[in-house]
Amino acid sequence: MNDLKWVRLTISTKSEAVEAISYALTNIGIPTIEIDDPNDIALTMEKKNKTDWDYIDEELLKNKDTDEVHIKAYLPEDTPYEEKIIQIQNSLNHIKQFLDIGKGTVKTDILHEEEWANSWKKYYKPLKIGKNILIKPSWEEYTPRDDDEVIIEMDPGMAFGTGTHETTSMCLELIEKYIAKGDVVFDIGCGSGILGIASAKLGASSVIGVDLDANAVKVAKNNVNSNNVQHIMKLYEGNLLDVIDQKADIVVANIIADVIIELSQSVLEFLKTNGLFIASGIIRERLQDVKEAMDKNGLDIIDLYEKGSWCALAARMKE
């Protein structure tokens, strides 16, 4: 059997630009990414205490610039990757107009498949979010602390969305706060499926997840099956709300401000009376733009969370 080799494109950036760059990579046809963010490790270590897990390897933070994040995109060796590098650089030039992207450099190297297939696992550990949500990778052992704990087993498999990033954790907290037993939930741009799986485990009767990225849908399906919620959550590859023809109690979108602004124009068509739109991935500098779009399109913001440089909100139809 031939040893498959991959081209690794490593983008040096900052935490606040991770969501926007990841979304841009998906749009230019690069679904397989790895995010190496020292801040995610530090965040998990901060959350540790003597009643929690204590097996984060602190060596992972040694000799790392905690201000620098590496987004690694992987392409088969026979891909015309020079064209992709140009597209990436154009995307970075656009994103840096409204976000600090740090160095914004793109480095290229070649490696064997086995070298990257499992390397990211060392950065992904159990994490408590909200009141009762516990995100656990399948390869880690974990004993539930109490009966109310909602354990979500996640293998991101290079699809963005592990729960560690502020935008994802805020979404999970808002879902936990507002979901009611029997709710119908739509997860727009579902990535790894984490938000939909959490909704299913928190009592939703039906969850639909959609994503443009075929790889993300594949990974999400694996995660759905691992969590035994396949009877509740269905996944589709498609362009946001184009594949949905029903209404939900909650629509959740963890994307970027521009897409949320666009969604605000049509989301009410997909919400039941008193339905809730939970939106995250909003960089603080774009929050006012999102607020104005919500107001213009008949949505009242009823809750707002802020973590680091990011914001998430919950909105309902104006009375």
Results as ranks from 00 to 15, higher is better:
residue 32 T to Q: 06
residue 187 D to K: 07
residue 84 K to S: 03
residue 250 I to Q: 02
residue 64 K to N: 09
residue 304 L to H: 09
residue 68 E to K: 15
residue 309 S to G: 15
residue 173 E to R: 14
residue 20 A to N: 05
residue 103 K to Q: 11
residue 306 E to R: 12
residue 158 M to C: 01
residue 205 S to T: 00
residue 305 Y to M: 12
residue 83 E to F: 10
residue 120 W to S: 03
residue 5 K to E: 07
residue 132 N to P: 06
residue 52 D to L: 15
residue 49 N to W: 15
residue 17 A to V: 08
residue 28 I to P: 11
residue 316 R to W: 05
residue 32 T to M: 10
residue 261 I to S: 15
residue 165 H to D: 09
residue 261 I to V: 12
residue 158 M to L: 05
residue 265 Q to T: 14
residue 204 A to C: 09
residue 304 L to P: 05
residue 277 F to S: 09
residue 254 N to S: 06
residue 165 H to S: 01
residue 239 N to L: 04
residue 12 S to G: 02
residue 186 F to Q: 08
residue 80 P to L: 06
residue 118 N to R: 02
residue 115 E to H: 04
residue 175 I to P: 04
residue 186 F to H: 09
residue 98 F to R: 09
residue 203 G to L: 02
residue 28 I to H: 07
residue 78 D to L: 07
residue 47 K to T: 13
residue 239 N to D: 03
residue 105 T to M: 08
residue 104 G to W: 02
residue 183 D to V: 11
residue 18 V to Y: 04
residue 240 L to W: 14
residue 110 I to C: 05
residue 141 E to A: 05
residue 123 Y to G: 05
residue 297 N to Q: 09
residue 20 A to E: 13
residue 163 G to E: 00
residue 129 I to M: 14
residue 189 G to L: 10
residue 89 Q to W: 03
residue 211 D to K: 11
residue 204 A to I: 07
residue 225 N to H: 15
residue 270 F to A: 08
